[in-house]
Design a protein around this nucleic acid. Structure first.
Lengths: 122, 122
DNA sequence: ATTATTGTATTACTTTATTAATACAATAGA
DNA sequence: TCTATTGTATTAATAAAGTAATACAATAAT
């Protein structure tokens, strides 16, 4: 795992995003045990508390869970992962539409701009 | 103008967004003079410096400009307004697409989800 | 020329967020 | 039972952000 951190945002947030992306991308498999807080912290060269914070935040998403003294695991509940993904997608969409509408753009405008963007980038 | 502020985000940002929205929505007309920093601050019941910060931030967008001792004005440059609007839209779209792709969603997925959202809300 | 009004700069206070040091608690494993 | 390993809680130190008090500077209006 490439722990490329900068100081543009809080470290714990960057870590949280990195791990989350890896889970969603399937780098970590369902049920897999994560390294311990201390090991992850050493690996990423951050204070253990910082890693702890990142992980406990991540936990709120339901992507990982804790077993008191055994460690942390990626959820085996694949449907929960799907659910979460859909929920995030819905939120993203609603936020996006709200922002675009505040700019005074119609649905047709939005469709047009999206297709234009896609045409340009590929 | 309804200065409904809460403490979920910095006051100066909320003010900036409110004014920006009003400009884009046409509540403030091109060339129109804004009330003075102190008057706006009184109206919104905030410290003048807070209003000053909101306005100077807003200025960076080019939507308003300052004449040293006369006050602040909405830009007459309508094309600048259009330009800005298009730029913001482009940024919003690119950010949105980046986020959706990180979730592993294809273009077709995105099209489908957007139409679904629209169908549901109207 | 004087004054009132404008935006701005400087400085300090306060609060919040972030990171770190350290101690605690639970239990798996030997 | 004992020990090493796990996550967690508490507290403190530091840094950053936000807000406010006050003084300054420029000029339009009189």
């Amino acid at each position: 795992m490439a722990w490329t951190l900068d100081d543009s945002r809080p470290i714990y947030l960057q870590i949280e995003d990195l791990i989350k992306a890896n889970i969603i991308a399937g780098v970590y498999q369902p049920g897999q045990k994560l390294p311990s807080v201390r090991d992850l912290a050493a690996e990423a060269a951050v204070n253990p508390n910082t890693m702890q914070k990142a992980l406990s935040e991540l936990e709120r998403s339901g992507l990982v869970y804790t077993q008191r003294t055994s460690g942390r695991f990626i959820t085996e509940d694949v449907s929960k992962m799907t659910e979460l993904k859909e929920q995030i997608a819905r939120e993203q969409i609603q936020l996006f539409l709200k922002n675009m509408e505040q700019l005074g753009l119609s649905r047709e405008d939005i469709r047009r701009l999206l297709e234009k963007e896609w045409k340009e980038e590929s």
